[in-house]
Amino acid sequence: MVSALPTTALAYDSVAEGTELPEIRTRVRRADLVRYSGASGDFNVIHWNERAARAAGLPDVIAHGMLTMAIAARIVTDWVRNPGAVVEYAVRFSRPVIVPDDEDGAELVVSARVAKKLPDHRVRVDIIVRCGADKVLSMARAVVVLP
């Protein structure tokens, strides 16, 4: 599955502070958690076993924080077109993403805006990720360096 992204990189001079990036909506289902466990090597039982999740005091199985962080990064990398432009990326995991055992799973809504143009062709983007009413990532920000 190769997407037809434009190959021209986004230029620093074309970027304006306050610009909203195109929103991303993604569903995360149990099968996605199993797949991410395998790909990442994070087999913590709270990401695939309800019994273990409840024993740990959680309402149900939760998504890997790093999966949410990875999904959120895409709003920036799709926008700049070159993922190699990301020079810094930081998040706080403020709420767990609870993934019920059904067809719908959990829906993540990722939004972002250009927060600041920095020196040396760097741009800071602030990201918000919501799952229902919960803000699941806070203080999420990426810095990209643009041509």
Partner: peptide
């Protein structure tokens, strides 16, 4: 494999 697991189709 990792890119597939995070659902990111970027060709790079």
């Amino acid at each position: 494999e990792f890119a597939d697991a995070i659902g990111d189709p970027n060709p790079v």
